[in-house]
Nucleic acid binder design. Structure first.
Lengths: 212, 212
DNA sequence: GTCTATAAATTGATAGAC
DNA sequence: GTCTATCAATTTATAGAC
């Protein structure tokens, strides 16, 4: 490599634009967009809203991404990748079904909290475009894999047989997903939310003998 | 009242319009609108969409309501009225706190199922207009009254003291509200959903001795 | 009660200068 | 990488005929 190093091998040094702000990348712009999308809703957000939130003009946004839909697609993929990663972790693929289920519940809560705005956006998608429909299809796939795990745990006698497994799965993950409605980083961080959810799912509210 | 009866005292006889369809009232139009709103999202629904769904022209809709926002406001009020009614029923105002809580859980699930599209719409509101902000304020009031009930049950030793009451309340009602994401009338109607939810909340998934 | 026609504003997106 | 200027399409809403 005696030749001058090609520009692409240089370390990334962010250029400073007006106001001494680092120039946007697709990634940093996505961060801004997802925040606005989750605040005002995707359809309720105009490119003008995005531009104002980013401190850019509308046309500058089109330098980084093809359009509003692409921003949505990137955000939904990120959320889904995080969720599917939980299902391939060792704790989710071996051992008693109820332990795998517990692992998936904990992992799903963690991903939801770590990627809060992205998962929030995913959970609100209605299927109004091909991009949204594709995300809904991936999400259904995730749901089905989890439902299968609950069914296994039930057949193995590890969880209550009095409940319909499919309904219980939906209710449990509905509970988990509802975290996006109120959790904000910084608040209630002393609470171990993944553990709280696992406890509530496994034993419910009823006082257990010896703890009251 | 010897004078001819005024038109307003006549029994309501719906006029038949084109295609032998009864003329719309604000109420029947609201029904159509709420269905479209929950399918495509409120912001994702144009007056043109509503007109197409109703089989009317856009301008005819303005004969019945002032505009899109008013349709939203009427729908949100209906959902909130139903939820608040649960809190004033006898079972919710006397007796041990845990029984009152159980009553409210059952009642909330019932209202949610009975007024499904209206409550669904309420749960998706983001606060993008004064009408939405007012609905969110009423909803917060409902949530606080319920949270108070859980706290009472906890203090009375009727539910597990290992859980944060406020967090548990949010998770439980998050689970209930998640019914709007998948419940459709006709399907799973043999399942007693209010009871299933109460059981899951009180005892969780864990198999109880004697039932396995 | 419903229609056609149209106004006024906003929307997602592009062209081209710096 | 960002800007101003602009376009074509869509959106909410109104006017006025039947």
């Amino acid at each position: 490599m005696a030749y001058p190093r090609s520009p692409s091998s240089e370390p990334v040094k962010p250029q400073r634009m007006r106001g001494n702000r680092p120039a946007y990348t697709t990634e940093t712009l996505l961060d801004v967009a997802v925040t606005v999308f989750t605040t005002r809703g995707y359809e309720g957000t105009s490119m003008e809203d995005l531009a104002a939130a980013a401190g850019l003009s509308k046309s500058s946004i089109y330098h980084h991404v093809q359009g509003k839909q692409q921003l949505l697609g990137l955000a939904l993929d990120r959320a889904l990748d995080g969720l599917f990663a939980v299902l391939t972790q060792p704790g989710a693929t071996s051992g008693p079904a109820v332990d795998r289920l517990t692992h998936v519940i904990r992992g799903t809560v963690r991903v939801l909290l770590d990627e809060l705005p992205y998962v929030t956006l995913l959970l609100r998608v209605r299927g109004n475009s091909p991009i949204e429909l594709a995300a809904l299809a991936r999400r259904r796939e995730f749901d089905q894999l989890v439902a299968h795990l609950v069914l296994r745990a039930q057949r193995d006698g590890e969880v209550d047989v009095g409940l319909d497994a499919a309904v219980a799965t939906r209710l449990i993950f509905g509970m988990i997903n509802s975290l996006t409605e109120w959790y904000r980083p910084g608040r209630a961080d002393r609470l171990d939310l993944p553990e709280t959810v696992v406890q509530l799912v496994l034993t419910g509210l009823a006082p257990r003998p010896g703890t009251g």
